[in-house]
Design a protein around this nucleic acid. Structure first.
Length: 718
RNA sequence: GGGCAAUUAGCUCAGUGGUAGAGCGUUCCGUUCACAUCGGAAAGGCCACAGGUUCGAAUCCUGUAUUGCCCACCA
């Protein structure tokens, strides 16, 4: 053995050997227990490459998987990738824009072909990178969210919801990304705080155009679509104006002055312009007061033909400029104040979101959300750390109906069929009927819309096991044991998986949800490729080896919300690997040429104080490691193991052993010491294996033990 | 506007009621038989601040400050 541990030579070799022997597939490997331990790995987007968050996640997954495999459980981890509808489409369009091509130049069919090509080329990169992390999942079960059986699951879920009466189609004000050309959900919006203005606009009264009602607004361009002015019914300043009529500046339309309790008396002037077409609140107010919905911004974010001629075709921001100037010219701009607002932006492309009325498909959330909420309340779903339950619950308490349709091309199409002669007539079903039930003559055409990406990911823990078909995997491995994911998708993904699982399988898809910390830079900044602040896990592996990288990541896993990434822990990992390697070298050297005669299970009898100490120490660390892994305290587990191995075993016992072997007090002592050395080493390797699988397996292979299997499937000590 | 978290040695972090800890870094010493990716030793902290509970507080409570992150239809 070399004096230094060299990970590069052995990692790939060992991984292939494990995979070839079928250890990652519980159907191939004989297991000692009937209990199953299953996890579905959160499917990375096909656009992605491995980042430090994935590496951390893979480490946690693999620690649990290897621990449970050694405990004898039928252990399964299903990997896969997500088609990532909007993310991939947006990435692809960005690339095409450089070539000077738009998706409309290509057309839907060709565009989808290109998306598939992309997926062929890049789709599995990240899965291969996860192999490099040592992740022991069953590659033969890998799924993609656009596999035919997966698409079938998505369609089945939608038609089921429809049968329940929970699906409706309707004209609503939705978040619209003019760049992506689609509706998006509230959860796909990112707000950026910006300093803007509050404009005070004077609306003349119809009775006397020299009198005004002043409204305050942050979006003057929506004036073109105003349908009313609203005040609070308790606001005495305006009580004489309620029911009167104002004249909408520039447009000249007459609009009513209405009373609505939703208006905040304190804000601005207490009078609000109401634009039902371009604001959620105003939409609702419009419904209450039966106001006209006048859309003036189109799907490209430009002013449409419902607006007066001079504004048509202007971008919303430019229209704002012009309107302010025009109002000023007419003396209708009272004042401007600075005002902090939250600008909604598309989380995919950062384009400013427009709110506009559009016909979309919704899934009612009341019943589903209540189920998911109850699951957390009754402890059927537990968050770790516990505090994340609040994030989950607070969103589920006031759910808005889920807009599941997207005007994208890449994704699973809605199983909805329209009559060609009446666009309002449709049926929901898995296949188009032979004959249109409405006009009796047309060939019905399928909806152009695709599903929200998260509608399909919500089914991940079911669909990977073959749902809606009744497959053996579904019986054996559903529900899964634990979900390990990042906090930013608690509502987007976790909550939706929970209610999908409860609805379709009557059981929550997992019991425990581990929310791991967000990895930030050392300075607490967001890691980002474009800022150059990201850390590439593959470079860490290259530099320190996989085991050292995993050690370093595990070391940093505590209950914190954020990790300020510190590469020093990888250095510690590398040194620790070397320490383990050399301790093994020493032990093997002491044992000499003897062939597999030592026992790893029968505890040698202690003779000296040092013997007693180390054997007690081993028993203690075994119990403690098990407990900490069961409690998901990975950082503490590895810190303790490190402490034990380095200081108790190497510093104390090996040093004592040198004397006991060289100058034994009796015949037995030297021989017994050797037995203790290998016993403690063997069991330490087992405890370390979930964290550092490669080096431990490599050393294990050369230990002269009786009845030895590969370490990955050896029984857990204790 | 609401919520969550963080604040401990130069750096990154452990430490949840009983004399302040680790890794890295720094200084000094040590290469003869597992390992210099090592061994030994040392320096370095009024545990953010202010109150309170307690025999005793980094730890529990209240408040303040700074930072970060979520959620929210205040125009």
């Amino acid at each position: 053995m070399e004096t230094r541990y060299n990970p590069k030579e052995i990692e790939a070799k060992i991984y292939q050997d494990w995979e070839k022997k079928g250890y990652f597939n519980p159907d191939k490997a004989k297991t000692r227990s009937k209990r199953s331990f299953s996890i579905v790995f959160p499917p990375p987007n096909v656009t992605g490459t491995l980042h430090i968050g994935h590496a951390l996640n893979a480490t946690i997954h693999d620690v649990l998987l290897r621990y449970h495999r050694m405990k004898g459980d039928k252990t399964l981890c299903v990997p896969g990738t997500d088609h990532a509808s909007i993310a991939l489409q947006s990435t692809l369009e960005k690339k095409m824009r450089k070539e000077g091509v738009s998706r409309f130049d290509l057309g839907r069919e060709k565009f989808i072909e290109r998306a598939w090509e992309w997926r062929q080329e890049y789709g599995n990169i990240i899965l291969n990178q996860l192999r490099a992390m040592g992740l022991s999942c069953d590659w033969s079960r890998a799924k993609f969210t656009m596999d035919p059986d997966y698409v079938a699951a998505v369609e089945a879920a939608f038609t089921y919801y429809h049968k329940q009466g929970w699906v409706y189609r309707g004209q609503r004000v939705v978040n619209w990304c003019p760049r992506c050309g689609t509706s998006i959900s509230d959860l796909e919006i990112e707000h950026s705080a910006e300093l803007s203005k509050l404009w005070y606009l004077k609306y003349p009264l119809a009775e006397n155009e020299n009198e005004f009602i002043v409204v305050a607004t942050t979006r003057p361009e929506t004036l073109l679509g105003d349908a009313a002015v609203a005040v609070n019914p308790k606001d005495e300043r305006y009580s004489n104006l309620i029911g009167k009529t104002a004249i909408l500046p520039i447009c000249g339309r007459k609009i009513p002055i209405i009373a609505d309790p939703a208006i905040d008396i304190e804000f601005g002037t207490g009078a609000v312009k109401v634009t039902p077409a371009h604001d959620h609140n105003d939409w609702q107010m419009g419904q209450r007061h039966k106001l006209e919905t006048i859309a003036v911004i189109d799907q490209r974010g430009k002013i449409n033909d419902s607006a007066p001629e001079p504004y048509r075709g202007l971008k919303a921001v430019d229209a704002r400029e012009k309107i302010i100037i025009d109002l000023q010219d007419r003396g209708l701009l009272e004042k401007i104040e600075d005002h902090n607002i939250q600008i909604p932006k598309c989380s995919r492309c950062s384009t400013v979101i427009q709110l506009l009325p559009s016909k979309q498909w919704f899934v009612k959330m009341d019943i589903l959300a209540a189920k998911a909420l109850k699951a957390a309340k009754t402890g059927k779903v537990k968050f770790c750390p516990k505090r994340w339950e609040a994030a989950y619950s607070s969103w589920l308490k006031e759910p808005r109906d889920w807009c599941v349709s997207r005007q994208l091309w890449w994704g699973q199409r809605l199983p909805v069929w329209f009559c060609q002669n009446d666009a309002e007539k449709y049926i929901v079903g898995l296949k188009a009927p032979q004959k249109c039930p409405f006009c009796k003559k047309c060939q019905m055409t399928r909806s152009e819309d695709v599903f929200d990406t998260w509608f399909s990911s919500a089914l991940w823990p079911l669909a990977v096991f073959g749902w809606p078909k009744s497959k053996p995997d579904l019986k054996k491995y559903y529900p899964t044991s634990v979900l390990i994911t990042a906090r930013d998708i608690i509502n987007l993904w976790v909550a939706r998986m929970v209610f999908s699982g409860l609805e379709f399988m009557k059981k929550s898809p997992f019991k425990d949800v581990i929310i791991y910390a967000t990895v930030l830079t050392k300075d607490g900044k967001r890691m980002s490729k474009s800022l150059g602040t990201g850390v590439d896990p593959l470079l860490l592996i290259e530099k320190y080896g996989t085991d050292a990288t995993r050690f370093g990541l595990a070391w940093q896993i505590t209950e914190t919300q954020d990790i300020h990434f510190n590469e020093d822990t990888m250095v510690s990992g590398q040194k620790f690997c070397n320490k383990v390697w050399n301790a093994a070298r020493f032990v093997l050297c002491q044992l000499g040429e003897q062939k597999n005669i030592y026992s790893q299970t029968i505890k040698p009898k202690p003779i000296t104080t040092a013997d007693r100490k180390i054997l007690t120490g081993l028993a203690k660390i075994s119990r403690s490691t098990e407990k900490k892994i069961n409690n998901y305290e990975f950082g503490h587990a590895i810190r303790e193991l490190y402490e034990f191995f380095w200081h108790e075993f190497c510093d104390a016992y090996i040093e004592a052993a040198k004397n006991q072997i060289r100058e034994p007090k009796n015949d037995l002592e030297a021989k017994n010491t050797k037995a203790i050395l290998i016993y403690v080493l063997a069991n330490s390797l087992k405890l370390l294996h979930p964290f550092m699988p490669f080096i431990t397996e490599e050393i294990w292979q050369s230990l002269p033990l009786k009845n030895k299997k590969d370490l990955i499937i050896e029984p857990w000590p204790g």
